[in-house]
Amino acid sequence: MKLNTILLPLLLVSCIGTVQADEKKAVEKVAKAVEAKTVEAKAPAADSVSKDELREMIRELIQEEMANLQPTSNTDSKPVAPAHAAKAGEILAHTCAGCHGTNGTLENEAFMPLAGMPEQEFVKTMLDFRDGARQSTLMGTVANGLSEQQIRDMARYFMEVSP
């Protein structure tokens, strides 16, 4: 038995449950494309595939690909926009999050929340830590590893995050 004679009905059967009525044309298109592909590939070895095996293969493939999808991912028809590049200060700002919360948002009284902090307050505090003008436990050590430009970039990043 030729592969395409098994494949087409099977594919259509497996599509029916998931394809909307207005997508019938698309299914026909797929069927034609598959037919074309199959003829093109000639698939000599495929003759040995039984109907059950093929059905099983389709089922497994669909299951596998469904499993690969995250439950809340964008599976609708919205165009996939490329992600934004990192903003200045963002990469450095993420190193603070282990204590100060993701993007400086924190519901924990022990550390200073950084999200929405006025830029100048952040800069002055960090420079004072860095230069030893302000006492600290470990912020002096952290600030000492940063340049003034880096501190300014982080300040701008955190200022723009809504607390």
Partner: peptide, 16 residues
């Protein structure tokens, strides 16, 4: 064999 482009637009799992 199915061809990724042929299926795009038909299945809800097309993106995968």
């Amino acid at each position: 064999l199915l061809g990724a482009t042929a299926l795009a637009g038909a299945f809800p799992i097309r993106s995968a």
